[in-house]
Design a binder for these strands. Structure first.
Lengths: 196, 196
DNA sequence: ACCTGAACACCGTTCAAGT
DNA sequence: ACCTGAACACCGTTCAAGT
């Protein structure tokens, strides 16, 4: 059932992921869904969990090219951020689904913990690591949400097909922009250690 | 009309801000709204613009206590980030309203430009400044969205009234957590300059 | 244990018609 | 120029009843 929901999500987007459509896809009455889930919100929470769950492809080995002389913890942290982004991008509107259930503490325990652990491996105390992980996660979610919203509007042909009138990121090249943001946070953390 | 919409938003939240409710509040038929706005999306875009528009209270003078020996541009950037946060927090679900309309390039041209200008005043090139402003804006939106979602769940009494089972930010004290994230980004930018 | 049928209380949007 | 009336095609959720 969650699998069918993910298929609808990826194919038609979050606004079209309705209980009625899901029921139709399962050849079942809408009311039947409420035996399996108490409401739509918990269905979405389940989807969020699956979206951020580690994919098989991305193993523990850091897939991000480490910069010259970069410390291990930084490479690991970058890698975690990158794979969180990949997870969100793997499904249409993935970032929005995860954001919407985040406050309940359901979706992000996995990635949140992995990010925190990566930072702690740099020798930062627990409090600092948790806060930095939060900041990183907020950046990733904000960035990917924006990115996916753009994808949606592009596919609808809403944007005039020439210039891209985007106030926040007129340049495109989302991946570079993403890496830059992660770099700022990681280097800010390094400087934070040096300074105090 | 936008003012009435903002009142409903602030009082009942985004899910309850429906065209029908707004019409009722204006003593008018729902269809009447469509003479003023082509659809709900553009109504929300208008609201987003007003939410991020500079408040009278926060003038150009930086209201953020500048850290010892901190450069001017950094204080200014912190101040812009802070006032963006204040703007989003001024209305219930403000961050979500702004996020949802952001990709159209409508909502954030104001604050996006102010953030970019603040960073550029530190001597960074246009490209770097734009990207850093984007990263900062994404962090701010992600952070405040999360913050406001928590407020909502708290008010609904969904969370067991003792421990706060939040995976991303178990500690509370949102303001400190916000400042910490901004600091990481600002210091990362400073280090970025030093390094290259 | 799992699903149907039917209903309740809603949505956003369109469009002819009124004034 | 601005609004009404009525409709269209949907929503999430509940609940008795079936098997």
């Amino acid at each position: 059932m969650a699998e069918t929901a993910l298929r609808i999500l990826d194919e038609y987007g979050l606004p079209d992921l309705t209980m009625r459509r899901l029921a139709a896809a399962l050849d079942v009455q809408p009311s039947a869904l409420y035996w399996h889930f108490p409401n739509k919100q918990s269905l979405l929470a389940e989807l969020a969990d699956r979206i951020v769950a580690p994919r098989d492809a991305r193993r523990d080995a850091p897939r991000v090219a480490s910069q010259a002389g970069e410390r291990d913890w930084a490479a690991r942290t970058r890698s975690e951020a990158e794979s969180l982004r990949d997870g969100l991008l793997a499904y249409r509107d993935g970032a929005e689904v995860v954001s919407s259930t985040l406050a309940l503490g359901l979706g992000a325990s996995g990635p949140g913990e992995r990010l925190t652990a990566a930072i702690e491996s740099g020798g930062f105390d627990a409090e600092t690591s948790r806060r930095a992980a939060t900041a990183l996660a907020h950046f990733v979610l904000g960035h990917v949400s924006h990115e996916q919203q753009r994808l949606q509007y592009d596919s609808l042909g809403v944007l005039p097909d020439g210039a891209v009138p985007d106030a926040l990121d007129a340049g495109g090249e989302q991946a570079e922009s993403f890496t830059f943001g992660v770099t700022l946070l990681v280097e800010g953390l390094e400087r934070h250690r040096v300074t105090r």
